[in-house]
């Protein structure tokens, strides 16, 4: 079984100076050629986990192996099989796009000829060919992010760490990047992705680990997690909270998961959006309750947290 796992981390614990407990016995397993989504709010410990697995910092306790190599004992070997795109676009402002990629290729000790070819290949794959010879100072935020991710792929790493890769990307670039990740995985790359967006984890990850305060609070396939949530959330607003309380009562029978109320807003997680929406309106109508607003939306990270911990991410 272990051989099918590209990343195995057990009981990682890390406390930073000042006593902040960043990781609290976090365990992670990522199957080869799959995506694991590490889902959690800001400050949940996602980046700390990535930094430990990419040999940047050492855990206080726990073990971690990448493709069977001990991250703590043999970091040099680990570095030769991984790629990392961190949260800040870690690129050199003064170098051009191509120069940045070549530098990373050189530092990965790729053969000289391959470095040049690979840099050209990636720059066009990431739609940066027009800006290839411009210093990064002239790049937009989204372009930098794309270049940063391209840089993490220069050495064709077997295991790729992407720390909130789509933060700051426009929807088009985000979709493009998702496609790139899917292609990489199809071809055998293992990806550990951190994200704050349930939608992203849902689209890409085979397994999701939800973290909060450095601890795992839930894990499973996207399907399993969403089964706890419902596919869609009906967000229904009322004139005041008294009416909302009454509505909460009659909407209770609608789905498998009980609805929640926040002030004069009622949220009903349901599995079949439009059908349940009709039914909700019917139920409200027959109880003679008038909604003021009515919205259908995808469940968010907040909903995951609410369902697991009973409180939102804030």
């Amino acid at each position: 079984m272990i051989d099918d796992l590209a990343v195995v981390a057990r009981d990682l614990t890390k406390t930073f100076k000042g006593g902040t407990l960043a990781l609290d016995n976090l365990s992670i397993e990522v199957a080869r050629a799959s995506v694991l989504g590490l889902l959690g709010p800001n400050g949940a410990g996602k980046t700390t986990a990535v930094r430990i697995l990419t040999t940047i910092i050492k855990p206080d306790s726990g073990t971690a192996f990448i493709l069977g190599t001990d991250v703590i004992r043999d970091p040099a070997r680990v570095r030769s099989v991984i790629g990392l795109a961190g949260q800040n676009a870690a690129v050199d402002e003064n170098l051009t796009g191509l120069e940045n990629l070549r530098m990373v290729g050189d530092l990965n000790h790729l053969p000289r000829g391959e470095v040049k070819a690979r840099a050209r290949e990636l720059i066009s794959q990431f739609d940066l060919a027009d800006a290839a010879n411009r210093p990064l100072k002239t790049y937009s935020g989204g372009m930098r992010r794309r270049l940063d991710i391209a840089a993490s792929l220069v050495a064709r790493p077997a295991v790729l760490f992407l720390d909130e890769p789509t933060t700051g990307l426009d929807p088009q670039s985000r979709n493009d990047l998702w496609e790139v990740i899917e292609n990489l995985v199809e071809q055998g790359t293992t990806v550990l992705l951190t994200t704050q967006y349930l939608e992203e984890a849902d689209r890409l990850a085979r397994q999701i680990v939800v973290v909060d305060h450095g601890r795992e609070i839930a894990k499973g396939t996207p399907g399993e997690l969403k089964a706890r949530l419902g596919q869609t959330v009906l967000e229904i607003g009322f004139l005041d909270h008294e009416i909302a309380v009454r509505a909460l009562g009659v909407l209770g029978q609608l789905g498998k998961i009980p609805p929640t109320r926040d002030g004069h807003l009622v949220e009903v997680p349901v599995d079949d959006g439009p059908k349940s929406a009709l039914e909700a309106l019917r139920v409200l109508d027959s109880a003679e309750i008038q909604p003021t607003t009515f919205t259908l939306r995808e469940p968010s990270l907040d909903d995951v947290f609410l369902s697991i911990t009973g409180k939102t991410t804030e």
Binding site: R79, S80, H109, D127, L153, R156, A158, V180, Q187, T189
Partner: peptide, 28 residues
């Protein structure tokens, strides 16, 4: 953006040489 070919390469040689004098100089 099209597909990125990712063939996990064997870098067993590269890692062994991380601190080789040749790489120390070249990386510098």
């Amino acid at each position: 953006m099209t597909a990125t070919t990712a063939l996990p390469a064997d870098y067993s040689e590269a890692y062994a040489r991380e601190e080789d004098i040749k790489w120390v100089v070249r990386d510098a």
